[in-house]
Every structure is written in structure tokens, then in C-alpha cells.
């Protein structure tokens, strides 16, 4: 294993732990933006590889996480560029000029409803997802493992106990600690609603 980026600042890259530390966080970020799990997974993978490639350019000015997110952002943009270049150019008309024009799917009929708040909800939920994911990544390893298996993957208590080799009362203690930590970590704002 090679230790990359020899600098004297406190921020250092440690690619060997990237997947454990950031994969879920990055994945959540990507899923919220491309809304396709497979594509999101590929983007995260590409981000890690791109990170390795440009590790020597890492100045240590930002934390590892911020740096990786910045790369992922570019990857998401590149992804949309790519799928857009494949499509034909969209045709926008101000008015229908003839009867035949009114048939078919026109872009202006698909514009967002200005009174809809759905999009805002989606953006807010994406932010919420990131906030939660960030808090989960700060949990002690065992707590986060139990919490993720229980809450996100929805596994049964029995399955988790078997997989981790703990007993149910142990599990509930872990869940309790994880949940209390998360309540403390999640910004108060989220609890106001």
C-alpha cells in the first residue's frame, strides 16, 4: 500500500479507507442527482479512481470528503453533458403556428408548474439525506453498522445478530446509542418541523 500525498498539513489522503468512509455518502449524493442507483454507483467508482489519479495534486486545503465531493460534482455534470449530447436538440416554439403543430409532445407543455412545491421537497430531502449520511459516517463503526443494517437496509433483528455475532439486547443498546448520537448530530433545524 502506498501512502499518497506527503504534506505537513492535517488533511491527508488515505485511499485505502475511502470506500468505508465515503462510499455511502457519495452514493447518496449521486443518487439524489441522477436518480438511478446503477449510474450513481458507477459515478462513485469513477470518482474514487479519478481521486487516485489526481492524488498528487491534492493540496490538503480541503478535507478528503470535500475534495471527493468536488470530483463527484464534476462527474455528475459530465454525465449530464454526455447524455445530452446524444439527444437531438430540443425544439421550443413560442406559439403553435398551425393546427398540426398542436399535436404531439411539446416542451412548453412540460414546463414545471410554478406553484408546485414538489421540487423543493426533493431538494430538501436530498440535503436531508446528505446530512444524515454525514452524521452516520461520524458514528463509531459498530453503531453505524447496526444502524445502517436496521434502518436503511431494513434487516431483521435476528439477521443482524447472526451477522454481527451479538445478542438482541446488545443490538438495542447499539441502536439506542446510534439514534441518540444522530439526534445530537443532526442540525436542530431538522427537528423543528
Amino acid at each position: 500500500m502506498v501512502s499518497t500525498s506527503i504534506n505537513m498539513t492535517e488533511n491527508q489522503l488515505n485511499p485505502a479507507s475511502w470506500v468505508d468512509q465515503y462510499a455511502d455518502y457519495l452514493f447518496n449524493y449521486a443518487v439524489a442527482r441522477v436518480s438511478d442507483a446503477e449510474i450513481a454507483k458507477d459515478l462513485v467508482q469513477e470518482t474514487f479512481l479519478a481521486g487516485l489519479k489526481s492524488a498528487k495534486n491534492y493540496q490538503g486545503a480541503a478535507t478528503e470528503r470535500t475534495w471527493l465531493i468536488a470530483i463527484l460534482k464534476r462527474k455528475v455534470i459530465d454525465y449530464y453533458r454526455k447524455i445530452n449530447s446524444k439527444k437531438g436538440k430540443a425544439e421550443v416554439r413560442i406559439n403553435y403556428s398551425s393546427q398540426s403543430d398542436s399535436a404531439g409532445d411539446w416542451l412548453e407543455e412540460n414546463v414545471a408548474d410554478p406553484f408546485s412545491t414538489l421540487e423543493n421537497d426533493q431538494i430538501e430531502n436530498a440535503e436531508l439525506g446528505q446530512a444524515i449520511q454525514e452524521c452516520i459516517s461520524k458514528l463509531p463503526k459498530k453503531q453505524s453498522a447496526v444502524f445502517v443494517m436496521k434502518t436503511i437496509r431494513g434487516l431483521s433483528t435476528e439477521d443482524i445478530c447472526n451477522e454481527l455475532g451479538i445478542n438482541p439486547s446488545n443490538l438495542w443498546v447499539m441502536v439506542h446509542r446510534a439514534r441518540t448520537n444522530l439526534m445530537g448530530c443532526l442540525n436542530e433545524n431538522w427537528f423543528k418541523l
Binding site: A131, I132, F191
Partner: peptide
């Protein structure tokens, strides 16, 4: 917290 987790629609690898 449960409601927040549900609403965030969390994904994990």
C-alpha cells in the same frame, strides 16, 4: 428521527 430517515429515502451500497 424515524420520519426524517424515511423522508430522506436513504440509499446504501
Amino acid at each position: 428521527l424515524t420520519i426524517l430517515c424515511e423522508r430522506a429515502y436513504l440509499h446504501n451500497l
